[in-house]
């Protein structure tokens, strides 16, 4: 059990998302950086889809109400456990009464706090994610606030497995170093994020010059960017003729272009349908990169193919499988 000490809003309980209900108008929700969520769970020996806390606002502080192992992944929030510095992408055992403090990260947008066993909230429509639009799921269907007490799912196995956890804990390599994309200089300083994009249904309806600039320009991620979607600013995209369309289904990653010509990338809390033309889709394998891209930084689209998109997804799965295998081996070697 942990108690939320921060008044800061917007932290929410999320798992990998609520799949299969878009047809009923229920959005997917789920972690913005699903690789970080899965990795945090892997560090703790949890199923990858266990629920954790997504933290987008700092400082953030919790108190542990029992001895429990936890993991921090995603943005490096310079965590301290009762003043002891904790490296990023790390797991360690907390003692009852200890306080964890997360500070504003230098890079990245979201930090994930996972607990051994996974966060214990009811499964609704197949997921523990908070559906903020529908106000259900997660912790009482809302973001967390001061005084909330969050429990982990009790498990004898995890208690057994983590007797081997070194006193200082241990970590894993963050995915940006295993799966680099784009020019290393700007990604290292997190000033520019590269994501791979597949052309979508209305791609061919745009002027050639617009298509050219879609791929070549730096898009600014505006301050109107959150779990619902990212609004971008740049040279406006122009269609060859006026497009009038009915609403159609959209999924996280779809890049829509309203009449202003300034694209919107729909994300985890997006509504499940919309009528704006779709110029492209950020591939699933790169959505975690978007989840860590901050407002005010630049975004670059890299054209890809369906086959490349699938193999990129395989690479993400390989990364997760490898950290699970090596984490298990490492803990065995510590017994």
């Amino acid at each position: 059990m942990i108690e939320i000490l921060s008044a800061t809003a917007l932290a929410s309980v999320q798992d990998l998302g609520r799949d299969g209900y878009l047809r009923y108008g229920v959005g997917t929700s789920g972690a913005m950086d699903r690789v970080a969520l899965a990795a945090g769970n892997i560090l703790l020996g949890n199923p990858e889809n266990s629920a954790a806390i997504e933290i987008p606002m700092f400082p953030f502080q919790v108190r542990f109400l029992e001895d429990i192992a936890f993991a921090l992944t995603g943005a490096d929030a310079n965590a301290e456990l009762d003043g002891q510095p904790i490296p990023p992408w790390w797991t360690i055992q907390a003692r009852k009464g200890q306080e964890l403090r997360l500070s504003p990260p230098t890079h990245g947008a979201r930090c994930y706090l996972a607990l051994a066993g996974g966060i214990d909230v009811p499964v609704m429509l197949g997921s523990r994610s908070t559906q903020l639009r529908g106000e259900f799921g997660g912790y009482c269907g809302r973001t967390l606030k001061r005084g909330d007490v969050i429990s982990a799912i009790a498990s004898a196995e995890r208690a057994e497995a983590y007797t081997a956890l070194p006193a200082a804990g241990f970590g894993i390599e963050p995915p940006e170093f295993t799966l680099p994309l784009g020019d290393l200089e700007s990604t290292a300083h997190a000033t520019r994020t590269f994501v791979r994009v597949l052309p979508a249904a209305e791609y061919d309806c745009y002027e050639d010059a617009s298509l050219e600039s879609f791929w070549s320009q730096d898009w600014k991620i505006t301050s109107q960017s959150d779990r619902y979607g990212y609004r971008l600013a740049g040279e406006a995209l122009v269609t060859k003729t006026t497009l009038e369309q009915r609403s159609h289904g959209i999924v996280p990653g779809v890049i829509q272009v309203p009449h202003s010509g300034q694209p919107i990338i729909q994300l985890r809390d997006a509504q499940p349908s919309g009528g704006y033309p779709k110029i492209g889709t950020v591939i699933e394998a790169d959505l975690w990169r978007l989840g860590q891209a901050r407002p005010g930084t630049q975004l670059r689209f890299v054209q890809t193919t369906y086959e490349e998109a699938l193999s990129a997804l395989d690479e993400v799965h390989d990364y997760l499988n490898k950290i699970r295998r090596l984490t298990e081996l490492y803990l065995l070697s510590k017994r």
Binding site: P87, A168, F170, I172, Y319, K322, L326, Y330
Partner: peptide, 9 residues
């Protein structure tokens, strides 16, 4: 060690 970061404490 592979993708694992073991601490030197």
């Amino acid at each position: 060690i592979g993708p694992v970061y073991a601490p030197v404490t």
